[in-house]
């Protein structure tokens, strides 16, 4: 019997149950009705899984390489444009992914504003694996940049100041002072970004299409299976594989992002 003033614990427990039950339901459905074993043996599933992990990881690398300097720049600037840019970066988070896909097409598609110059340079983006990465980057990178921006903003600038007065170079300061301080924020953002990229569906479908082996990631394979005669059972079987795999990688990423694994 919990103490009288601890009644509120009921709320988090209820909330936890709300998230756990559907996952258990999914797993149970796959065990009783689905055929996880045959989906595990299907080359379409493996192609999709490989493509998903490859593209989501590429997306994460790009988000870190391009997003960290951006977040740092925005956080260290007091100017109005910096705050405006930070707000604009949140926009892809609220856009329905399908809209993001159309937005990407209007720029990078064959009829897009950059379509002609790109095709003259011999580059076709839409409906390629590169398009999958761009779609994921557009939708998922803001999660990383957002977290990094919050991390850099919360950091006390005096630490960097002291490092400079001690004669440390800009890069050395960033590496030995700034980075360890904001590491948890960056790692948390990276996990979110990677996870969101792995689950991306709408923007990918619009901008990259769904072709097995080239652009059909796990979520698209699940959608296709859902639409097929194998229907629900097939879709759920693939979904469970994705969930299991994602869980494994999330556990790994979380271990990397905890203080014990932090950059030193």
């Amino acid at each position: 019997m919990p103490r009288r003033d601890q009644w509120w614990v009921v709320l988090p427990v209820l909330f936890g149950v709300f998230f756990l039950l559907p996952l258990i339901g999914l797993g149970w459905f796959a065990i009783t009705d689905g055929d996880v074993a045959s989906e595990l043996g299907s080359s379409t599933t493996w192609d999709a899984l490989r493509l998903s992990v490859l593209t989501a990881t590429l997306t994460l690398v790009l988000a870190i390489v391009l997003g960290t300097p951006l977040a740092y720049l925005l956080a260290s600037s007091e100017a109005g444009w910096a705050r405006l840019t930070a707000t604009l970066l949140d926009l892809p988070l609220v856009l329905p992914p399908v809209v993001s896909g159309i937005a990407l097409l209007t720029v990078f598609g064959r009829r897009g504003y950059l379509g002609d110059p790109l095709s003259e340079a011999g580059i076709t983006l839409s409906f390629t694996t590169a398009a999958v990465v761009l779609a994921q980057l557009f939708v998922a990178a803001p999660y990383y940049v957002r977290a990094a921006y919050a991390g850099f903003t919360a950091m006390d600038p005096r630490f960097e100041g002291v490092a400079y007065t001690l004669g440390l170079s800009r890069w050395r300061t960033f590496r030995s002072v700034t980075l360890p301080l904001v590491w948890p924020a960056l790692a948390g953002g990276a996990v979110l970004c990677w996870a969101r990229a792995l689950g991306e569906l709408g923007a990918t479908l619009l901008f990259a299409g769904s072709l097995p082996g080239r652009t059909q990631t796990m979520p698209l394979a699940i959608l296709s299976a859902f639409e097929s005669s194998a229907g629900l059972a097939g879709a759920v079987s693939i979904a469970v594989i994705l969930v299991a795999f994602a869980l494994l990688l999330l556990v790994l990423l979380h271990r990397l992002s905890t203080p014990s694994g932090a950059y030193r």
């Binding site: 409906f127 299409g209 769904s210 072709l211 652009t215 059909q216 296709s224 859902f226 639409e227």
Partner: peptide, 14 residues
Amino acid sequence: VITEDPNVRITLSR
């Protein structure tokens, strides 16, 4: 073939 879509409306939109 560049895409195998889950819905005929999406196919037409291409």
